[in-house]
Write a protein that binds this DNA or RNA. Structure first.
Length: 116
DNA sequence: CATCTGACCTAGT
DNA sequence: AACTAGGCCAGAT
C-alpha cells in the first residue's frame, strides 16, 4: 500500500473519531480539530475529509463543525434534506444568517475538554 | 505537467 | 483593525 494512502487513512480516521466526540448540542472548528490531532495548519484538509464522511458508519456529525467565526461554511455540501442548519437547530443550536448564535457559549475545544 | 481551487487558520505587516 | 502571504494537500482543469 502506498505511503500516501496510509497517511490519508490515518488522518481521516482521526478526524472522524474526534468529530464523533463532539457532544450533542455543541460545535467546534476545523482548526481546533486539526490542532488536536497533531496536524495544526491542515484545517483545509479537515473539511476535505468531512466531505467524505456522510456515508461513514457509525455516523459522523459533520454539522457540528463550523469555521472559526461560527459560520456554517460547509452548508452547501450537505445532502439534500439534511441541511446543516436543520440538524443544528434540531440539537437546540440557533442559527441565523449562516452563523451559530452565541457561538462562544456552545463552542467545544477538543484540546481542553476532550478527556480520553 | 503546471496551476488553480477549496467545509481554513495563523502570522506578519 | 484590515490586509496579505503562506501553509496544508487532494482533485479538478
Amino acid at each position: 500500500m502506498p505511503q500516501q494512502d496510509v497517511k490519508v487513512d490515518v488522518f481521516q480516521r482521526d478526524v472522524f473519531e474526534l468529530t464523533r466526540a463532539i457532544p450533542f448540542g455543541r460545535v467546534t472548528s476545523y482548526g481546533a480539530i486539526a490542532r488536536s490531532i497533531g496536524a495544526a495548519g491542515a484545517s483545509r484538509r479537515v473539511g476535505w475529509v468531512l466531505n467524505t464522511s456522510f456515508e461513514a458508519v457509525p455516523p459522523v456529525p459533520a454539522h457540528r463543525v463550523v469555521n472559526r467565526k461560527g459560520l456554517l461554511t460547509g452548508r452547501m455540501h450537505f445532502p439534500e434534506g439534511h441541511s446543516m442548519e436543520a440538524q443544528l437547530e434540531a440539537e437546540g443550536i440557533e442559527v441565523t444568517d449562516h452563523g451559530v448564535v452565541n457561538f462562544e457559549a456552545v463552542f467545544w475545544d477538543p484540546q481542553v475538554e476532550w478527556l480520553d
